[in-house]
């Protein structure tokens, strides 16, 4: 399948990676020494870019070699190296061309901002993640599951409600947010509601699909055992629905955080990552903006991984 030769040449890989990384870091340090005047145009057109590109290519060769084989390093090193090298290259390039912080901050400036604004970002993250995204996610999930159970019991409701759910799940959140915020207010509640609504429909749709997915053979079997409806539900319908529900949850988890942030753009009471991003963009404090984006991304990935982990615990049979 893959085009690479299976012979691992790890030593060469490490050499190339190290050289590339050290080169880029060295370039950045060198550039930090000379205080270039703020200007948008390139100082020495092309020259720096050639050097950075050459070092990146060297790194790419290293990444390619390190990806050989099936060992632990071959699975983790390429991704880690890609990120580190790209960040270093961005640092060097931004410094070489003296790009002002007000346009694109260097990664080191973002790190500094991350540290300097840590208490505020922590509080913002708490607001956005816990009170808006997480709470909305839980409410949306519970409502979705509840409606799904009702729908499966009452076929009339399923046939009347589900088509709307499918339609409403393709409503863009940016069109929804201003109206909800105007109606509910600027506080946390409006964002929680928006997140809950965006989680509700996919969960509902997938849960109904899942509850119907129980194979008729199993259902017949339960019937022949004279199992009660509750037993059938617990032993057959519910387990077969869970994978579907988790698929929806995994998609919804990072989205709930993103949606909370987007909703904050339409009004807050002065807290939250979306608020921070919006207010700092206006001040050209793009280092803080990127710091907030980093925080949001880390939270989003963690949320996704936690949901995946729970899924694997609950559904041990599936891989």
């Amino acid at each position: 399948m893959s085009l690479e030769r299976p012979v691992p040449r790890l030593a060469g890989a490490w050499g190339a990676l190290g050289l590339s990384g050290l080169g880029l870091a060295g370039l950045s340090l060198l550039l930090a020494r000379q205080e270039a005047p703020a200007q948008l145009g390139p100082a020495q057109p092309g020259l720096w870019l050639v050097g950075i590109t050459a070092l990146l290519l060297l790194g790419a060769v290293g990444i390619r070699q390190s990806a050989q084989g099936e060992g632990h390093p071959a699975r983790t090193v390429p991704a880690a190296a890609t990120l580190i090298l790209l960040v270093l290259a961005a640092e060097a390039a931004l410094r070489a061309y003296a790009v002002p912080t007000g346009l694109i901050p260097t990664p080191s400036k973002v790190l500094e901002a991350l540290w300097a604004a840590r208490t505020v970002l922590w509080r913002d993250a708490l607001t956005t993640f816990v009170y808006e995204a997480l709470l909305g996610f839980v409410i949306g999930t519970l409502l979705g599951l509840g409606l799904a159970l009702l729908s499966v019991r009452l076929r009339f409701l399923e046939r009347g409600l589900l088509p709307y759910a499918a339609l409403l799940s393709s409503v863009p959140i940016v069109a929804l947010a201003p109206v909800v915020i105007k109606a509910v207010g600027l506080g946390v509640a409006s964002k929680t509601i928006i997140v809950a609504v965006t989680v509700l429909f996919p969960v509902l749709i997938n849960a109904v699909r899942g509850l119907h997915s129980a194979q008729s053979m199993h259902l017949d079997l339960m019937h022949s055992y004279a199992a009660s409806a509750a037993q059938t539900f617990r032993d057959v319908r519910w387990p077969s629905a869970l994978p579907f529900v988790f698929t929806a949850l995994r998609v919804a988890a990072p989205l709930s955080l993103i949606n909370a942030i987007v909703a904050e753009f339409f009004g807050t009471e002065g807290r939250g990552l979306g608020f921070r991003i919006q207010i700092e963009v206006g001040k050209f404090g793009l280092d803080v903006v990127w710091a907030a984006i980093v925080v949001a991304s880390v939270l989003g990935i963690s949320f996704y991984l936690v949901i995946s982990l729970i899924e694997r615990r609950i559904l041990p049979g599936r891989r």
């Binding site: 893959s2 990444i63 390619r64 991704a79 984006i293 949320f303």
Partner: peptide
């Protein structure tokens, strides 16, 4: 290319948790 996959896929996935709209 497996090396391309190994080098970029985690970050392609991670990019979905970045609030791109921001």
């Amino acid at each position: 290319s497996r090396s391309f996959e190994r080098a970029t896929l985690p970050w392609l996935v991670a990019s979905q948790t970045v609030p791109v709209v921001a």
